[in-house]
């Protein structure tokens, strides 16, 4: 049994990059980890307007067709991650940890819960009280309002994809889909608690929380 005490993580900040480019970087890192090389790495970035469908996506959660979504300015991807459809866009801080969980105790759920802890700590640094919701992976303000989404992919214990924290994104851009397939859930931004907050201000806090929980 490995412990996480010896593990360390590398954080790479990629700025605003298209989904496909970030996915290529993720795949490269994953290949390294699968081959037993490289280090556990977190990519932190923003995407342009993008809709991604997880494997469990139900058609009713995307009322628009792919071509309609593209017309509306979204890039559209169907990917191998958990969860339903979601939106990424400017003002949303996205994190892709490429971790080898075989070296971190081989426990998928502990990993998911730790990701939630990282996000909850980050939010607490700005005085935003957030919590988990039993059975609904992600980070919530209350029963209704969701501030961060999680969806990951796993191959031989190496993770892909990750989390998306709404800092100051255009929430209306979520309206093209039913985020996470939860029609009653409402997406919310950090800047609603802490006015004029920007992604660049949240980054250092998030990095600190990631290092604390995973480093």
């Amino acid at each position: 049994m490995h412990t996480s005490s010896g593990a360390s993580i590398e954080i790479r900040k990629l700025g605003r990059i298209p989904f496909a480019e970030a996915l290529a970087v993720q795949n490269e890192l994953r290949e390294d980890r699968l081959a037993g090389a490289g280090t556990d790495t977190v990519l932190l970035l923003e995407h342009p307007d993008t809709i991604t469908f997880g494997r469990a996506s139900r058609p009713e959660n995307a009322p628009l067709s792919d071509s309609e979504l593209r017309c509306a300015g979204y890039e559209v991807f169907r990917i191998q991650r958990g969860g339903d459809v979601t939106y990424h866009g400017p003002g949303q801080l996205v994190g892709y940890p490429i971790f080898d969980l075989a070296q971190r105790g081989r426990d998928l759920h502990r990993y998911l819960r730790t990701l939630e802890s990282v996000l909850i700590e980050t939010l607490a640094a700005f005085g935003i009280p957030a919590c988990r919701r039993e059975g609904y992976t992600g980070v919530w303000i209350d029963e209704r309002r969701k501030i961060a989404s999680i969806g990951i992919g796993l191959r031989r214990w190496v993770t892909l994809h990750g989390f998306a924290l709404n800092v100051c994104c255009d929430l209306e851009r979520f309206d093209a889909v039913v985020p996470c397939g939860l029609p009653e859930a409402e997406m919310i931004n950090m800047c609603e608690f802490s006015a004029s907050l920007e992604v660049s201000e949240v980054l250092p806090r998030l990095e600190a929380a990631l290092c604390k929980e995973f480093g």
Binding site: A56, Q80, L108, L112, L154, R155, R156
Partner: peptide, 16 residues
């Protein structure tokens, strides 16, 4: 080689 895709709680696993 990947045999199947398995899902649990917002995580998808490519099952080899």
């Amino acid at each position: 080689e990947i045999l199947a895709d398995v899902e649990t709680d917002k995580a998808d696993m490519e099952f080899e």
